[in-house]
Structures are given as C-alpha cells and as structure tokens.
Simulated assay, not measured.
Amino acid sequence: MVSLRAIVEDETTLLNALSLTIPEREELASITHPAQRIEWLACRLAVRRLVEAQGVPYAGLQKDEFGKPHLIDSPWHISLSHTTGWAAAVLHRSRPVGIDIEPIRDQFRRVVPRVLSDKEITHAASDLNRLAVYWCAKEALYKLYGKRQLTFRDHLHIEPFADHEDQLVGHVRLPDHEEQLMIRCFRTGPGLLAVAY
C-alpha cells in the first residue's frame, strides 16, 4: 500500500496529529531547516495513516543501525520519501520495500557518471526523463536493501526499459548477495514515484 500526499499542513498541525516517541522527538530536534521538519513529519503521518487503515494502532518508528526506519512493535515493512511539498510512504506486510519520490530536474545529468553503469548511461542517452527513472528506481532499491555498503553505479542495476513503461526490473549485486527485484515507477505528484519490492 502506498500513500502519496501533497503537504498542506504547517508544522504545528502535523505535530498535533502525531504522538512522537522520545527518539523521534530527538531526531526532529536535530533537523533545523523548517521545510525539512515539515516533510519529516508529513512522512510519519503518511505511514501512520497506512498502518491505521489496516486496523492496527500506530506506535511510531525506530531506526536500525543503518538508519532504515521500522515500525515499532510490528513485523511489517515500510519506507518513506519526501521532496519539496510532498511526502510518500509504502507499507508491505511481508517483504521489504523501498520508495522514492523525485521531481524531474537537470541535476540528474550531473550525477550520471557516479550513479549509472556504462550500460545504463548508453540506454539513458542523456534523456532527462530516462535519467530520472534510473535515479528514482535506484533510490527505491537502495532504501529497500537498507544497508550502507552500496554504490548506485556498482551495486544497483536497472534493466533497460521502454519509455512510459511503469514496471522495471532491478538488481542488487554484491560479492556475497544478489537479488532481482521489481520496481513500479509512476509519473505523479512532483515528477516520479518509484516503489521497489
């Protein structure tokens, strides 16, 4: 289940809608930029609504040693993403998931050499929309895997895709671990939304 929402609330409204744990309050206190605080809160409200829609009380989030968020007192899997004015969350009852939301922007062209493999660079052919799909899909894979020993160029790979195709095939390739995953990529909200599962 995915929740994508435009952020229309202010910080006070979002805070009043949530009961943050002490670690969550400490993390929020470390965020100094006002817009990032609102996005952080909006993500938690999005995931709370997903959990409560399943008829289960929401107890908050905790992060593991890699910084990946997990539901407190629940085996379900979640992932969060935000960008200016938007918050997204995904919930799956039985398998890891990753989500990313991105506006389509020229920055993707500047990061190509460190993000895409040679094969992906050739396929993207400097097309901004394809570059955005690669970036967003790889971010979702990174969040799904949830550990920090990954580089986008060397360990995360997306198979070539047709323009306007919304179902992609991705791979996490490490010396001691390899898996193939599906990624749904949609044009929505500020640009793109990718969900890896």
Rank of each mutant, 00 (worst) to 15 (best):
V51H: 01
A42N: 00
K63V: 10
I22L: 10
I121Q: 15
R5E: 11
V111C: 07
L144N: 10
L28P: 05
H155D: 13
T188S: 15
R187G: 14
G98R: 05
E39F: 04
L174T: 13
L150G: 08
H123I: 09
A42H: 00
I7H: 00
A29V: 03
F152C: 08
L61N: 00
L91D: 04
V56S: 14
K143G: 10
I31G: 03
M1L: 10
F152Q: 07
H164V: 13
M182G: 15
Q107D: 12
H77N: 12
R25K: 13
R187M: 15
G170M: 04
R130M: 05
Q54P: 02
L91I: 08
H177T: 14
V112G: 06
S74R: 14
Q62S: 09
H123N: 13
F161S: 10
L71C: 06
D100R: 12
I101A: 13
D64I: 11
R44H: 00
Q167E: 12
A137V: 09
L192A: 09
A87E: 02
A42W: 00
P57T: 07
R130H: 06
N129L: 11
R44L: 00
H155F: 08
A46E: 00
E26K: 10
F152M: 14
V56M: 15
D100G: 10
L168K: 06
V51F: 01
L45G: 01
W76D: 06
E120P: 12
P57Y: 02
R49M: 08
E11C: 00
A46H: 00
R93F: 09
Y145E: 04
P69R: 02
A42L: 01
T151G: 12
S117W: 01
K63R: 14
P190L: 13
A87L: 03
E139C: 09
H164G: 12
P34E: 01
I78K: 03
F66Y: 11
S19K: 15
I22C: 08
